[in-house]
C-alpha cells in the first residue's frame, strides 16, 4: 500500500564503542546519544511529537527497565510515548505508523541494551518455547550453528576448515559478534519538516515486518521467507538497492539473508561493519536502519535497504527501503 505521507529518517546517533559507556547506567548511556540525535534534528528534549523506544527487561535483568530511561528524554511536560519489548527497529516502525496517522510530524526513536549485564547465551534461551525448547537451554550460537550446517548440507555455505577453533561447529568464534552495550537514537520527520531538519533526508519508501513459526524443526533453516515477504511488501524488489545493512548476528545468517533479499555483487553490504562488528542486543536492528539512513544523508547511497531481526534463527524480520528521493518526486 502507498503510504499517505512521506516520512524520513533525518538524524541518527549511536553510542561509541570506546569504553565511554563503561559504568554508566542505561539512562546515562542513552543521554549523550539522545542529545546528539536531537541536536542533528534541531529539536529540544521533549519536543518531538512522538517518542518510541525498544528494549528488553530480560536483557536488563529487571522488570520495567524502560521506565528509568525515560529520565533521559526530558518527558516534561508529559509526552506522547510508547515502548516495544524488542529491538528498536520495531519502535521505528511504530513511530512511522504514528506519523502516517497525522497525529505527529516528528518522532524520536531510541533503543538501549546492556547485554554484558547478563550472559546473552543464557538470557536469549528464554525466548524459546517454554515447554519444549527453553528447558534444554539451547543458546543462540547453537541454533545459528544448526542453521549453518543446514546451509552447508544444501550447498549454500562452504564447510569451514577443520583445523580452526570452533565455537559451535561448524561455526567459529569469529562467526559471532561479541555482545557490547549500546544505545542508538533516530529522528523521523514528515514532509517539509524533514526537509527543514536534514539536507538529504532518508525517505522511508517502504517498511514491513513478518514473523514465522518459532520451532526450528518446522522451518527451512536455509531460507528466510519472512524476510523475503517483508522485502516484497516494502518494495525492495521494485528497483535495485546500492546498499544493504543486514542484521545478521552470525555469518551464516548473512548468507540466508543475502539469498532471501537477492543481493548480488553490485550491492554494498554492511558498510558499517554490520551486526558482526558490534551487537548491542535490542539496538542492533535500529542501528542498521540508522546506518543505512546515514549513508543517504552523506550522499553515499541513493537507495538503501535496512534489515532487522528478532528471535531464534531469524524468526521475525523487518525490512525498510530508504531513498534520497521521496515518493511524490519519483520519475
Amino acid at each position: 500500500m502507498t503510504p499517505p505521507r512521506d516520512v524520513a529518517v533525518v538524524a541518527f546517533a549511536h553510542s561509541e564503542r570506546d569504553g565511554s559507556a563503561d559504568g554508566a547506567s542505561e539512562p546515562e548511556m542513552l543521554l549523550p546519544v539522545l542529545r546528539e540525535a536531537l541536536r542533528q534534528a534541531g529539536l529540544a528534549p521533549g519536543e518531538a511529537d512522538f517518542t518510541c523506544s525498544g528494549s528488553s527487561d530480560y536483557l536488563a535483568g529487571r522488570p520495567f527497565s524502560f521506565t528509568l530511561t525515560l529520565d533521559s528524554v526530558g518527558a516534561w511536560p508529559p509526552i506522547a510515548e510508547s515502548h516495544v519489548e524488542t529491538d528498536g527497529a520495531w519502535a521505528l516502525y511504530e513511530a512511522w505508523v504514528k506519523i502516517l496517522t497525522g497525529r505527529a510530524d516528528t518522532a524520536l526513536v531510541y533503543a538501549h541494551g546492556k547485554p554484558t549485564a547478563g550472559d546473552p547465551a543464557d538470557v536469549l534461551t528464554r525466548q524459546l518455547d517454554p515447554y519444549y525448547l527453553a528447558p534444554l537451554w539451547p543458546d543462540p550460537r547453537a541454533l545459528a550453528a544448526l542453521q549453518a550446517r543446514a546451509l552447508i548440507d544444501a550447498g549454500h555455505l562452504e564447510e569451514p576448515p577443520a583445523a580452526e577453533a570452533h565455537a559451535v561447529l561448524p561455526l567459529r568464534a569469529g562467526d559471532f559478534p561479541a555482545p557490547v552495550d549500546g544505545a542508538a537514537a533516530v529522528v523521523l520527520a514528515a514532509g517539509d519538516t524533514a526537509r527543514r531538519m536534514c539536507e538529504r533526508p532518508a525517505w522511508i519508501r517502504g517498511i514491513d515486518h513478518r514473523i514465522e513459526p518459532q520451532a526450528p524443526g518446522l522451518r527451512d533453516l536455509t531460507d528466510s521467507p519472512s524476510t523475503r515477504l517483508a522485502a516484497e511488501r516494502a518494495g525492495a524488489f521494485r528497483a535495485p538497492v546500492d546498499t544493504a545493512e543486514l542484521h545478521a548476528p552470525c555469518t551464516a545468517q548473512e548468507t540466508v539473508l543475502r539469498r532471501a533479499l537477492r543481493l548480488d555483487g553490485t550491492v554494498t553490504v554492511n558498510p558499517s561493519g554490520g551486526a558482526l562488528a558490534a551487537d548491542p542486543v535490542m539496538v542492533t536492528g535500529l542501528v542498521r536502519l540508522g546506518e543505512a539512513a546515514a549513508r543517504i544523508h552523506r550522499g553515499d547511497s541513493d537507495r538503501a535497504l535496512a534489515h532487522a531481526t528478532s528471535g531464534p534463527c531469524l524468526q521475525h524480520n523487518l525490512v525498510a527501503v530508504l531513498e534520497a528521493v521521496p515518493e511524490g518526486e519519483t520519475r
Binding site: 527487561d57 525466548q127 514473523i211 518459532q214
Partner: peptide, 25 residues
C-alpha cells in the same frame, strides 16, 4: 518467564507470515 513471548505465540496467534508488534508500556 518467557522473554518476548510473541515469538513463541506466533503460530497460536495465526501470525505466521504476518506482522506482529509487541508493546510493553
Amino acid at each position: 518467564g518467557v522473554m518476548m513471548p510473541e515469538l513463541y505465540l506466533a503460530d497460536a496467534l495465526g501470525a505466521a507470515g504476518k506482522p506482529v508488534l509487541r508493546v510493553h508500556t
